[in-house]
Amino acid sequence: MDQKELFENAVANSKTLPAKPDNETLLRLYSLYKQATEGDINTENLPGMFDFVAKAKYDAWLNLKGITADDARRQYIDLVSRLSGK
């Protein structure tokens, strides 16, 4: 399997993890997914001041700025693998 297939499998597996990850891990999964699929975040669309969930997601993704899609996919695959115990 190539990396894109492994990534797609990891995305599917992330929906059937044995236990729900904590919020920090969920943010990591979200940000790695976004970096892998869309690249660097568009910093012109800031979340609302009182939208704390959107702000947390924004910040998590912004922290990955500059990481390549391949590296983000690899990190996502590794994280899902650890979370699923495989």
Rank of each mutant, 00 (worst) to 15 (best):
G66K: 14
K57R: 15
N45P: 00
Y58S: 02
T68G: 15
A10D: 10
A54W: 13
K34T: 02
D70T: 03
N9D: 01
P21V: 12
I41F: 02
E8G: 03
G48R: 10
T25D: 06
T68L: 11
R28D: 08
G39A: 03
D2Y: 10
L83Y: 11
T37K: 03
D71V: 15
S31N: 06
T25I: 09
G39R: 00
G39T: 06
G85S: 04
Y76P: 02
F50S: 09
A12W: 07
D78E: 15
E38W: 08
A10W: 07
V11L: 13
L27A: 04
K86D: 11
M49Y: 03
L27T: 05
L27S: 07
P47F: 10
A56C: 05
E24D: 13
P18N: 03
R74H: 05
P47E: 06
F7A: 01
V80T: 01
Q75H: 01
N45V: 12
I41G: 01
D70L: 02
P47V: 04
E8D: 00
A69R: 01
A60R: 09
P47R: 07
D2R: 15
K86M: 10
Q35S: 14
I77V: 15
S84T: 03
E24K: 15
I41T: 03
L83W: 06
I41H: 01
